[in-house]
C-alpha cells in the first residue's frame, strides 16, 4: 500500500574511513510517471550542515519531494552530525574552504550517491549544491556517470586566497610554452643544470607545463587559444564541467545578484566556457535572482530560488 504522504527518515552510512555519516531521505508518496526513477541529492553548503542557512535545503527537498522526486540531504565527514573532522580541531575557515574546493568531500558524496541509488532504486541522479556544495557537486558529478543533471547555486569558481598551488596551475596553463622553453634552455647552462638535477627548481611547475602542453596539442586541453582568468581560477572545476557536457549532462547555474561568486562566474567562467561554446549554451541555463544575497534571507528570494530549481527540473524530465 502506498504511504499517504511523503516520508522523511534518517539514514546513515559508513564511509571508507570508517566514519558514520548522517542524512535525511525524503521519499514521495508515489513516483510521478514523467519523473521516473530519478533522485535528487542535495549537498550541504560549504561548512554548514544538510539543513543549510534559512533551512533552504529542507525547503528545496520538500518542494521536490512533493513533485514526486526521492530526495536525499546529506552531511559528509566533519559536517553536521557526521563523524570525523575536516581539519584538526578548530581550524581556519579559509583553510577548510580550500580543502572543499580541492575536492575533500567528493569521496563521501560518491558514497552517498551509491547509497541513494541502491536505496531508492534510481536510474538517474541530479546533484544540487550551493557554494562549496556546488563545487563538490560539479567535481563529484564528473566522476559519477549516473549524474546527468547538476544544479549549482552561488558556486564560486575561484579558490580562496590562501591557494598558492592554484596560482601554480594557472601559471602553468597560461604560460606552458614559455616555461618549457626556459626549462630546455636550463639544460645547457651548467649552474642551472646543477639546480635542476638537485631538485632546487620548481619541478612541479615544469611537469604541469609539460602535461598541459601535451594535452593542448592532442586536443584535451582547456583551450588552444589562451585567455586571461584570475590566478586563483579553479581549473579542475572547468575540467569537470567539460567532462559533464561531453557526457551529455545538463547544468543549471543559479546566482544571487548580490553574491560574490557571481562576479567570479561572470568574469572567469561564463565568457570562456559558456558563451564561447555553442554546446555549453544549449545544455546549460543561467539565472540570476535579483537583489538576493548568499543565504537568501528574504522570503521572495527563497521563493524564486525554489521555483527556478523546480521549473528547471520539470523541464528536463
Amino acid at each position: 500500500m502506498q504511504p499517504q504522504k511523503p516520508t522523511e527518515d534518517v539514514v546513515t552510512l559508513t564511509n571508507r574511513s570508517g566514519q558514520r555519516l548522517y542524512g535525511i531521505l525524503h521519499l514521495p508518496c508515489s513516483h510521478s510517471a514523467h519523473v521516473g526513477a530519478r533522485g535528487v541529492h542535495i549537498l550541504n553548503p560549504g561548512l554548514k550542515n544538510r539543513v543549510a542557512p534559512n533551512r533552504l535545503n529542507v525547503k528545496i527537498a520538500r518542494t521536490l519531494c512533493d513533485l514526486g522526486y526521492p530526495v536525499l540531504r546529506s552531511d559528509p565527514r566533519g559536517i553536521g552530525d557526521s563523524e570525523g573532522q575536516l581539519g584538526n580541531g578548530n581550524a581556519g575557515v579559509l583553510d577548510l574552504w580550500l580543502k572543499i574546493q580541492k575536492g575533500a568531500l567528493v569521496e563521501d558524496t560518491l558514497a552517498w550517491n551509491d547509497f541513494f541509488s541502491r536505496r531508492a532504486g534510481l536510474e538517474g541522479l541530479t546533484l544540487v549544491g550551493q557554494c562549496g556544495g556546488g563545487v563538490t557537486a560539479l567535481l563529484a558529478a564528473a566522476k559519477d556517470k549516473r549524474v546527468d543533471r547538476v544544479v549549482l547555486i552561488d558556486t564560486p569558481f575561484r579558490t580562496v586566497p590562501t591557494e598558492q598551488e592554484t596560482a601554480l596551475i594557472s601559471e602553468a596553463y597560461n604560460s606552458s610554452g614559455e616555461i618549457l622553453r626556459e626549462g630546455f634552455q636550463n639544460l645547457f647552462q651548467a649552474n642551472r643544470l646543477r639546480k635542476l638535477l638537485a631538485f632546487r627548481v620548481n619541478w612541479r611547475l615544469y611537469l604541469r607545463a609539460l602535461v598541459f602542453s601535451i594535452r593542448d596539442r592532442i586536443g584535451l586541453g582547456p583551450e588552444s587559444a589562451r585567455f586571461e582568468v584570475h590566478e586563483r581560477f579553479n581549473w579542475p572545476m572547468a575540467e569537470a564541467f567539460r567532462l559533464l557536457l561531453k557526457r551529455g549532462a545538463q547544468i543549471c547555474f543559479l546566482y544571487a545578484e548580490n553574491d560574490f561568486s557571481l562576479k567570479e562566474f561572470s568574469s572567469d567562467f561564463h565568457p570562456h566556457f559558456l558563451e564561447a561554446d555553442i554546446m555549453s549554451k544549449q545544455k546549460c541555463r543561467v539565472h540570476i535572482i535579483p537583489h538576493a544575497n548568499h543565504i537568501y534571507t528574504e522570503p521572495e528570494w527563497q521563493s524564486e530560488l525554489l521555483q527556478q530549481v523546480r521549473d528547471w527540473l520539470t523541464v528536463q524530465s
Binding site: 561548512l47 575536516l86 581539519g87 580541531g89 578548530n90 581550524a91 581556519g92 575557515v93 577548510l96
Partner: peptide, 8 residues
C-alpha cells in the same frame, strides 16, 4: 560567523 570554524 568567525574566521575559525569551531568544532570544540
Amino acid at each position: 560567523e568567525l574566521k575559525t570554524h569551531y568544532e570544540e
